[in-house]
């Protein structure tokens, strides 16, 4: 068993034990902090598929995070006002059901990622970064001007949406739900990474000319990865909006895109549990250093600089060493 596998197992144990301990100790705020970390980790798992496996440096993933968030906000706000979303040509009503909201969030963000990816993947390198950033900003400014759904002020939701068999208002139950979703996304990443698709995608990142020379289309492989990546990040957006019971254009901002990318790089780009470590460290720093100084992100910057300069495999790489090759 490799060091990374052991580390990953310990991280899963920590994800289960620490919030459970906090719950038993009567500290719901810590559970909520852990929920935030898990949801941000899910967003970063999405980006890690595009960035880590596909080499796609997207600075527009907040677009999908926000689309997921607004999918939740719009459906839930119509459910709480009892005003249908649409009456003609057929009736669409709002909903407070998480599974339905997740499905809509995943489909909407996947579609957004497919469209943005189809246009963005005509470029590469710095142009790809810029065009994804531009698409993100387009959606950001659209949300600011979208008055029926709160515009700049955002859209509050009064009661957290429901999941069959759970009371999502109880922090530990909502945390458990988010954790299961995160673990499923991590399992999906692990399966993809070892599959023929993952092999071809990772090769397309390294040597697209070789991938073409064996009869495959690297752009299509990357587009599929980008779409899947957007769908997962969109799902995390729906959960994030549910956690805060609020959705606003901030979810679509380029700072949010940068934050998701920082989580991936901090933990280890392309490493399975990189996003989890990145998100946990980010939320911990936000909470602990944020209480001491409002300039806590300066220290995050210093850590990120050190990781980029001295630990190219991120914090996971620092602890578990270089990534092993499959054989």
């Amino acid at each position: 068993m490799s060091r990374e596998t052991i580390l990953n197992a310990l991280l899963v144990a920590g994800l289960v034990a620490l919030p459970l301990g906090a719950h038993l100790a009567g500290e719901p705020f810590t559970v909520t902090l852990a929920t935030r970390a898990v949801i941000l980790a899910l967003a970063a798992v999405g980006l890690n598929i595009a960035l880590g496996l596909g080499g796609l440096v997207s600075l527009g993933h907040a677009a999908f995070f926000g689309v997921g968030g607004y999918a939740m906000g719009i459906l839930a706000s119509h459910a709480q006002s009892y005003v249908p979303l649409m009456e003609a040509p057929f009736l669409i009503e709002g909903t407070k059901s998480m599974p339905v909201i997740w499905l809509v969030a995943v489909v909407a963000s996947a579609l957004a990622a497919l469209l943005i990816g189809m246009l963005s993947l005509r470029t590469s390198g710095v142009y790809f970064i810029m065009i994804t950033l531009a698409f993100g900003q387009m959606l950001y400014y659209f949300a600011i001007g979208w008055a029926p759904y709160g515009g700049e002020d955002g859209l509050p939701i009064y009661v957290r949406n429901g999941f069959p068999g759970l009371n999502t208002l109880v922090p530990i139950q909502f945390y458990a739900l988010c954790l299961v979703v995160l673990l499923l996304a991590l399992a999906l990443h692990a399966v993809i990474a070892r599959s023929p698709f993952g092999l071809a995608l990772d090769a397309a990142r390294q040597v697209p000319e070789r991938v073409r020379a064996v009869g495959l289309n690297p752009t299509r492989l990357k587009l599929a990865a980008f779409t899947l990546s957007g769908a997962i990040t969109g799902l995390s957006g729906a959960l994030f909006a549910d956690l805060n019971r609020f959705v606003s254009p901030t979810m679509l901002s380029w700072q949010m895109s940068g934050e998701i990318m920082v989580l991936v790089i901090l933990g280890g780009t392309g490493r399975l549990f990189g996003p989890v470590v990145g998100a946990a460290v980010f939320v911990a720093l936000d909470h602990h250093l944020g209480g001491l100084t409002e300039f806590w992100q300066v220290w995050l910057g210093v850590i990120l600089l050190a990781v980029v300069l001295f630990a190219r495999g991120g914090l996971i790489g620092l602890i578990a060493g270089e990534r092993r090759t499959d054989a």
Partner: peptide, 20 residues
Amino acid sequence: ATLGCVGATGTPWRIVSRAL
């Protein structure tokens, strides 16, 4: 080498099976 086989057999969209 397996990448070549994936290309030759037109199986890059397989997600569930292990490449190796």
